[in-house]
Design a protein around this nucleic acid. Structure first.
Lengths: 146, 146
DNA sequence: ACGCAAATGCGAAGCATTCGCAAGTACGAT
DNA sequence: ATCGTACTTGCGAATGCTTCGCATTTGCGT
């Protein structure tokens, strides 16, 4: 199954700002915050700049139209947005440098979620790892001496 | 392994407000927001009321001392706090009524997290289910007829 | 090209959370 | 038991992310 490119949502008016947000998200390889999207648009060639509140409104629309997924990570009050690539994704966050690393597989893929029988109808799940990335675990080791 | 009762953190001065926050969290059976803790304290017999900013400061301290865990749920910008009962916990959130249901087992307990070899040192994970609780899936069915 | 509903710019408002500082309090030393 | 001081708290203001309101502008069907 190849990564399917998301199409423009049906019945949504095309505006420069919306196309800019969409373009930024398509180029992003990790979830972005609204402000990151906003500054990314400024740097984008030939894209009209968009006000932050507009970006929020566009994102809200996209989430509603199901082309964007809104997430958030631990110890962060900021919402993150990414294109809904229709494939299950999880991330690992480095406790130290807060880098976000995308994972390719889902550990729960086959194991059916063992929720108490019938007491909850599971639609989906959110899974997030935290720990130390390669770089940070390296520097940690160096600090502690071998 | 019985549920161990958490002790007062060492080297932490006892004050009415801190003891109130601790008591509220001990009685809570689900993670609470700072404001919920604040109003719970008001209702607590013989507890001096605590200002919201104080509650936040107490919680910050407790998190630092490792007796409290800070979490958050999807589609919510609010932080939730619960006693660190030293046992792994996960929750299921109802998309409709936002009820939170505690789960007893962790689906990832035995399956070692299959992160790319050596590229990330996993310390822990956060897992959260969403879907419909018993009540809401019932009313949904009724609405859809048959 | 025109008209109108919808989108945007812009700032203000709204939350949860944090900060700053003066007043109050716990707790070890006396 | 009392004192002194460093730590806490009350309280409000500030912050940062997000949403709202409204006048102006823009996309798009006709």
């Amino acid at each position: 199954m190849s990564r399917e490119q998301l199409q423009w949502p049906e019945g949504v008016k095309r505006t420069k700002q919306r196309e800019s947000v969409f373009a930024v998200l398509q180029n992003a390889e990790r979830p972005l915050s609204a402000m990151e999207i906003c500054t990314a648009i400024d740097k984008l060639d030939g894209a009209a700049s968009a006000w932050l509140s507009t970006v929020y409104r566009v994102l809200e629309l996209f989430v509603e139209k199901d082309v964007v997924v809104k997430t958030s990570l631990i110890n962060s009050d900021m919402a993150l947005y990414e294109l809904n690539r229709l494939q299950h994704k999880h991330y690992a966050t480095c406790i130290k440098c807060h880098k976000i690393i995308a994972l390719d597989n889902c550990p729960m893929e086959q194991s059916a979620p063992p929720i108490e029988n019938g007491s909850f109808q599971v639609i989906g799940h959110r899974l997030e790892f935290f720990g130390y990335c390669k770089d940070c675990s390296k520097t940690l080791m160096e600090k502690c001496g071998s």
